[in-house]
């Protein structure tokens, strides 16, 4: 297991390096400069500015320079915020996005799994039809539309929750639901399919033939086996939700990393673009590693072929 993880970490570093390089190159191909009134500046002034920010050097030199600094934990300073270190921004804003993402995932996953199980057990019955219809609806409606509807009814009409913000627990409710229902719907559909498949397996008949009650058969034999494939979906989904809540962060004015990312791209704030992309990439890669390890914990067949040295 230890060797396996070590190997995986090696691959992760390679992936991460490729992401950095590609982002750096594509970022340099973006039109425009980081300077707001570039067209009003004299060439002299522009060159001075470029020199100040190190942009007058050839791109390969800039690239190596960036890598060298990164290895020393320096992601550079934001062009838009007076060279304030990028890491400071990330550390301050990332936890908020992380909080929103994780709360949404927990909300969506728990509800999704429960709905999927119920739907799978009552396949073809009323409860199943209801769940399936609901999930199709929630998958089809984009989260920002849902957010707007929630804001209108729960904030404006009955004024139960604040319209925007991110401080008290009450402010968390609407954004978390907005993101969470999509997650819930996807997971419910997936779980339903797995449940239906598992319930048709021979070992379920074996369990019934032992005289176990229906609840015991489902709880002890069906659910665990149905959960195995779900774990693989939850990982990338978590990464996608944590990194992909830009729109919701904007709608609810949540000071997360999403809005920072968009601002950075719009203003050509190079170090900030690099920093946020790196953070997203790292998060994604690490989540997938965690999922693969978790997979082995749930499914004993994987554990052994992974080379467990017990």
């Amino acid at each position: 297991m230890g060797r396996y993880i070590l190997k995986r970490v090696g691959y992760m570093l390679v992936t991460f390096y490729v992401v950095i390089t590609l982002t750096f190159l594509s970022m340099k191909m973006l039109p425009g400069t980081p300077f707001k009134f570039a067209n009003r500046l004299t060439p002299e002034q522009l060159n001075q500015l470029k020199h100040y920010y190190g942009l007058d050097q050839p791109i390969p030199v800039q690239y190596l320079h960036y890598l060298w600094n990164m290895l020393h934990g320096d992601l550079g300073g934001s062009f838009q915020y007076g060279m304030q270190p990028v890491t400071e921004f990330l550390l301050q804003r990332f936890p908020i996005s992380m909080e929103l993402g994780i709360e949404s995932m927990i909300f969506g996953t728990v509800l999704g799994i429960v709905l999927g199980i119920i739907s799978g057990i009552y396949r073809g019955k009323f409860l199943d039809w209801g769940t399936v219809t609901l999930t199709v609806l929630f998958i089809s409606i984009p989260s920002f539309i849902f957010a707007a509807i929630l804001q209108y009814f729960f904030s404006v009409k009955i004024q139960l929750f604040p319209v925007i913000g991110w401080d008290s627990p009450m402010t968390h409710v609407l954004p978390v639901i907005s993101i969470g229902v999509g997650v819930m719907a996807s997971i419910a559909r997936f779980m339903r399919t797995e449940m239906v498949e598992v319930l048709n397996q021979d070992y379920i008949v074996t369990a019934q033939a032992k005289g176990l009650s229906t609840v015991a058969v489902i709880y002890k034999h069906a659910i665990r086996n149905a959960m195995i494939p779900i774990v693989t979906v939850i990982g990338p989904m978590t990464a996608a939700v944590v990194t992909g809540s830009l729109v919701i962060e904007n709608i609810f004015a949540i000071p997360g990393i999403g809005s920072q990312f968009i601002d950075a791209i719009v203003t050509n704030d190079y170090p900030m673009i690099m920093g946020t992309t790196e953070l997203y990439a790292a998060l994604f890669i690490v989540t997938i590693l965690i999922v693969d390890i978790l997979y082995g914990v749930i499914d004993p067949r994987i554990r052994v072929s992974g080379g467990k040295s017990s």
Binding site: D202, Y203, V205, T206, A207, K220, R224, N225, I298, P300
Partner: peptide
């Protein structure tokens, strides 16, 4: 049962 490969719960 007929097929011992599938008659046992793989995760128990």
């Amino acid at each position: 049962f007929q097929d011992p490969m599938t008659a046992l719960n793989p995760t128990m």
